[in-house]
């Protein structure tokens, strides 16, 4: 009898656990799992909101492969994505090494606080700030140029500058955040290593090169992995900063999906591209995991 009573109590407890996790699971079923499956299904359809959607097999996929516009945004995404992956991993590492050599703590803390800030801002804010700074008349850059007697350049309307601007502004926004990751892992390095190196007569450059950098490799791997997983997701920045003149150079896959799917309502076609991008992301992620031998 006592046994049954405790069993009943056990079930009551488990029921409460199910109830506590239910909202999260329900959310993921409705807004993640179902959409993933539905997106896969729609990619094989000529999808309509009203009436029956026709099954068209691989037509959407074949259409994508034969559309020059798809390959163009694919190329743009690779160029922007790869540059972001590499630059926002290594430049912040360099900055962290420099910051680490600063002896005056308030100045160190102040500069950390400042360089992290842009990470908090939305792409509308960051895009708005830089479009203004790069603008032809009242923008800071062109005012500086006119000091040196150089003519004003309409940066945001020049195809040749478009990608550099996108990559540079992304670096401006993200590098402080990544830098903090490195600084935190530098703070975790065993100080005995440095003391031993100092006794052996190693200067600060040698200490950075032979102790700090190797200790940062594991953080570098995490950063690279995060960057790789985000590389093909670029959307907000392009949505905010694009215009028709520079669009051919910077339109990316996710913008293309949004535009074809929800502006032109070619939902099946857009879903097929989403599926392609998703599969590529998974493959790249798995390869990266293998390459960097990351243990989850």
């Amino acid at each position: 009898m006592e046994h049954i009573k405790s069993l009943a109590g056990h079930f009551k407890r488990i029921r409460m656990l199910y109830l506590l996790i239910l909202p999260a699971v329900l959310y993921f079923i409705i807004f993640t799992y179902f959409p993933v499956l539905n997106g896969f299904r729609i990619s094989f359809q000529d999808y309509r909101f009203i009436g029956a959607s026709k099954f068209v097999g691989l037509k959407n996929y074949i259409e994508a492969i034969h559309t020059p516009g798809f390959w163009r945004v694919f190329g743009n995404t690779l160029i922007l994505g790869l540059s972001n992956v590499i630059l926002t991993a290594f430049i912040p590492m360099f900055l962290a090494l420099l910051l680490n050599e600063v002896q005056f703590t308030p100045w160190k803390r102040f500069s950390q606080t400042i360089i992290y800030m842009p990470h908090l801002f939305s792409w509308v804010i960051v895009g708005g700030i830089w479009i203004f700074i790069l603008s032809p008349n009242s923008g800071l850059i062109n005012i500086l140029r006119s000091f040196f007697g150089k003519p004003s350049i309409y940066f945001m309307a020049k195809e040749s500058y478009a990608r550099t601007i996108m990559i540079g502004v992304n670096l401006w926004k993200q590098s402080g955040y990544v830098c903090i990751l490195y600084l935190a892992s530098i703070a975790g390095i065993n100080t005995e290593l440095y003391e031993a190196a100092m006794i052996d007569g190693a200067g600060s450059f040698k200490r950075a090169l032979y102790i700090t950098v190797p200790e940062l490799v594991s953080t570098l791997k995490v950063v690279l992995l995060l960057n790789v997983m985000g590389a093909l997701r670029i959307f907000n920045q392009i949505y905010v900063m694009r215009n028709e003149v520079i669009a051919p150079k910077i339109d990316v896959l996710m913008y293309y999906v949004y535009d074809r799917g929800l502006a032109q309502f070619k939902l099946g076609y857009a879903s097929a591209i989403s599926v392609i991008v998703f599969v590529i992301t998974m493959i790249i992620t798995i390869i990266s995991l293998k390459l960097i031998k990351y243990k989850i």
């Binding site: 179902f34 997106g39 729609i42 996710m254 992301t281």
Partner: peptide, 11 residues
């Protein structure tokens, strides 16, 4: 990634 399921989430 959310960006990759925007079409079905929209639906």
């Amino acid at each position: 990634p959310f960006e990759m399921i925007i079409i079905p989430v929209y639906i």
